[in-house]
Design a protein around this nucleic acid. Structure first.
Length: 565
RNA sequence: UGGGGCGUCGCCAAGUGGUAAGGCAUCGGCCUUUGGAGCCGACAUUCGCAGGUUCGAAUCCUGCCGCCCCAGCCA
């Protein structure tokens, strides 16, 4: 029994099971992930990738990678490269099945000729505006184009000349002859080809006519022998057209299945909105650690495993939903708790002098690298007379349940000694600048007296040994669960940006961190999970990104104390 | 007011006529040299609403209500 986990059922698997039972595809399951290379992949795509590759694997089938590159004005190779990198990083392999809709341009052209020969497609000379007017509205039927009844020969000739470049951009289209009175607007003689002189990232200038999504997608699926073409809900209305094309062409007929796209609280997921964040300089780029892009999450410190786990947990259904960001955070905490090495880092340093500790003495304290993993071993951390502790771990006048340092109180320094706060040193303005403490030499970690009960344990860094490091503290990009909701007329999602989404601090970290490699994951004890940034920082002076905080019970208590008088 | 979808706990989500899984969140308690982790427990007499069929309905029927998508030569 390799897998004790209950594999979640969903409606897509049910459809596949029915097909397998009826023999519709001979028991074959072949899916595809079809990104348009016009932007970076985000976590919603990750869900789709996990779904498509996951289903293929579960049923012993295959999943293709196919770039849906039918609109050269928006697409480019930078996006192709980033997409491939992200899918690989997530842990999926399309082997030799890397395809492009543009691979099929010639076949698509031949298919179009067949429809023309069959009297099922025609060249239309209506302008864009006219086409819209002829299409009718949601409640009124459309009218037939005056070019609808041209002869097969004339259509064929015109279409050839469209391809040859005899006509200016936008002057003609090839349309499927279906039904201008259909209640489904997609069936009102949809456009198959438009004339567009744009350089394509793969086919160059070979074509001046490009197929539309509807015309290219289903036929591409068919050519590749796809059995289950999984897409998002908004394409449900397109399914009759998808079916119409493959039926008229009498070619392999995949089944299109639609599911609800992923939404997550406190972020946005549309490529258009993400592009705006990038272009308006609100974030650092597509891979800004606050972005829900795969590259952003990677830089933030998310792991492939945590994203796959998240994808499994969110489920697959047709109900539009918004997953609580807390679930994503739970997934990364669970992964990092098991794997991240523990270290000590003080983000907001407050100097502590142990007045009864010898000035020249330095001790090496043994610290466990990961209590969840015995094989992770331990390391030595230097301890000396002058230390840094977290400023928030001291309060002059502590409230109830504050288990940390305060005047006259004792606290344990993790892996070291129990200390007592004897004196608070302030500057002229009354700011606390230093604490004078005494230590109990009998309480060194490992000694019998170390087992004495004390209320709290603090992390610390030896001042003379500390390494300076920039630490980037990230929070949600938006401070509203649903960023699209605005208070005032005329506002958009940018009105809900969280001004505190990035806070940069200068921290004091333990010496072992000076040589930390980019992409390594750490837990800064009592603070959260951090990773070494891949862009900023240099040798000996790493920059850390906060992936996620640790669950913080005290913060909850404290918050409750403040709001309840 | 045309067509296509969707409505099960705060957020997701199983369930497909036999009497409401699970996860996240939340709230208690235990444990703890991370207020972390872990462990134990609590958490929908009810499935948008109203009728009907049935011994029995979240599941079947009828009628309402609410939300989303579609009028790009974008995908």
């Amino acid at each position: 029994m390799a897998n004790m986990e209950t594999v979640q059922s969903n409606f897509i698997k049910q459809i596949i099971n029915e097909h397998n039972a009826s023999g519709r595809y001979g028991g074959r399951v072949h899916t595809r992930f079809p990104p348009e290379p016009n932007g970076y992949l985000h976590i919603g795509h990750a869900k789709s990738i996990c779904l498509n590759f996951g289903i293929a694997e579960e049923y012993g089938g295959k999943c293709n990678l196919r770039f849906d590159d039918t609109n050269p004005v928006k697409e480019n190779v930078e996006y192709v490269d980033s997409i491939k990198e992200d899918i690989r990083w997530l842990g999926f392999d399309w082997e030799d099945r890397e395809f492009y809709a543009s691979d099929y341009f010639e076949t698509l052209y031949e298919y179009a000729v067949k429809l023309i020969r069959d009297g099922k497609a025609y060249v239309c000379e209506l302008t864009g505006e006219e086409i819209r007017a002829y299409r009718g509205t949601l409640t009124e039927t459309g009218r037939n184009s005056p070019y609808r009844d041209r002869s097969v020969e004339e259509n064929f000739d015109l279409f050839q000349r469209m391809r040859a470049g005899d006509y200016p951009d936008g002057s003609r289209t090839l349309r499927a002859k279906i039904d201008m009175a259909s209640p489904n607007l997609n069936m009102r003689d949809p456009i198959m080809y438009r004339i567009l002189r744009a350089h394509h990232h793969r086919t160059g200038d070979a074509w001046c006519i490009y197929p539309t999504y509807d015309w290219a997608h289903g036929q591409s699926d068919s050519i590749e022998g796809i059995t289950h073409s999984i897409c998002t809900l908004e394409f449900e209305d397109h399914r009759p057209l998808y079916d119409w094309y493959v039926t008229q062409l009498e070619i392999h007929h995949p089944r299109q299945i639609e599911f609800a796209r992923l939404n997550i609280t406190c972020t946005v997921m549309s490529k258009r909105k993400l592009l705006r964040l990038v272009q308006e300089g609100i974030v650092d780029g597509w891979d800004d650690p606050r972005m829900p892009t795969i590259s952003g999450l990677r830089r933030r410190g998310y792991t492939p495993g945590s994203l796959r786990d998240f994808s499994d947990r969110v489920g697959v259904a047709k109900k539009e939903s918004t997953i609580d960001m807390a679930l994503l955070e739970h997934c990364i905490r669970e992964d990092l708790n098991a794997h991240a090495l523990r270290v000590m880092a003080v983000l907001d340093p407050l100097k502590v002098v142990i007045t009864n500790y010898p000035a020249s003495e330095i001790e090496e304290m043994e610290a466990v690298n990961n209590p969840e993993d015995a094989t992770a071993g331990s390391r030595a951390v230097p301890f000396s007379r002058e230390l840094y502790i977290e400023r928030e771990d001291f309060m002059e006048d502590p409230p109830k349940k504050f288990f940390r340092l305060a005047p006259g109180r004792e606290v344990r320094l993790r892996y070291a000694y129990i200390i007592r706060c004897e004196e608070v040193i302030k500057d002229a303005e009354g700011n606390i600048v230093e604490l004078h403490c005494t230590y109990d030499s009998e309480t060194r970690s490992g000694l019998p007296q170390a087992n004495r009960k004390v209320k709290g344990t603090l992390h610390w860094v030896s001042a003379p040994h500390a390494v300076d490091a920039e630490v980037r503290l990230y929070e949600q990009l938006f401070d509203r669960e649903h960023p699209e909701t605005t208070d005032e007329e005329g506002q958009d999602f940018l009105a809900n940006l969280n001004p505190a989404s990035l806070q940069i601090v200068q921290a004091k970290v333990e010496p072992s961190l000076a040589s930390a490699m980019a992409g390594t994951h750490f837990q800064f004890e009592r603070k959260g999970y951090f990773t070494v940034d891949s862009r900023y920082g240099k040798k000996g002076a790493p920059v850390f990104n906060r992936t996620v905080t640790l669950r913080d019970t005290w913060a909850k208590i404290h918050k409750g104390q403040k709001t309840t008088p």
